[in-house]
Amino acid sequence: MISPNAFFHVALKVPDVGEAVAFYREHLNGDLIEHEQPNEEATGATAVEHAALMVGDKHLYVFDRAPYEAAGLVDELPYGVLHFGYTVDDVDAAVADLADDVSFVMEPTVFGDLKVAFFEDPAGTRIELLEYVD
Rank of each mutant, 00 (worst) to 15 (best):
Met1Val: 12
Met1His: 15
Asn5Asp: 13
Phe8Lys: 08
Lys13Ser: 03
Val14Asp: 06
Asp16Trp: 11
Asp16Lys: 13
Val17Arg: 09
Gly18Asp: 13
Tyr24Glu: 00
Glu26Arg: 06
Gly30Ile: 05
Gly30Arg: 06
Leu32Val: 15
Ile33His: 04
Gln37Asp: 04
Gln37Pro: 02
Ala42Cys: 09
Ala42Gln: 00
Thr43Arg: 02
Gly44Asn: 03
Glu49Asp: 05
His50Met: 15
His50Thr: 12
Met54Thr: 02
Gly56Leu: 06
Asp57Ile: 14
Leu60Arg: 06
Leu60Gly: 02
Phe63Gln: 09
Phe63Cys: 08
Phe63Ala: 03
Arg65Gln: 06
Arg65Asn: 00
Pro67Trp: 04
Pro67Ser: 09
Glu69Val: 12
Ala71Ser: 14
Ala71Val: 14
Gly72Lys: 09
Pro78Lys: 04
Tyr79Gln: 11
Gly80Leu: 10
Val81Asp: 03
Val81Gly: 01
Leu82Val: 11
Phe84His: 09
Asp90Val: 04
Ala93Gln: 13
Ala96Leu: 12
Ala96Gly: 11
Ala96Asp: 15
Leu98Gln: 02
Val102Phe: 10
Val105Thr: 11
Gly112Leu: 12
Asp113Ala: 13
Leu114His: 07
Leu114Gly: 04
Leu114Gln: 10
Lys115Thr: 03
Val116Ile: 12
Ala117Met: 07
Phe118Tyr: 13
Phe118Pro: 08
Phe119Arg: 05
Phe119Pro: 13
Glu120Ser: 11
Pro122Thr: 04
Ala123Asp: 11
Ala123His: 10
Gly124Pro: 13
Gly124Ala: 07
Thr125Leu: 11
Glu128Ser: 06
Glu128Arg: 11
Leu130Ser: 02
Leu130Thr: 06
Asp134Met: 08
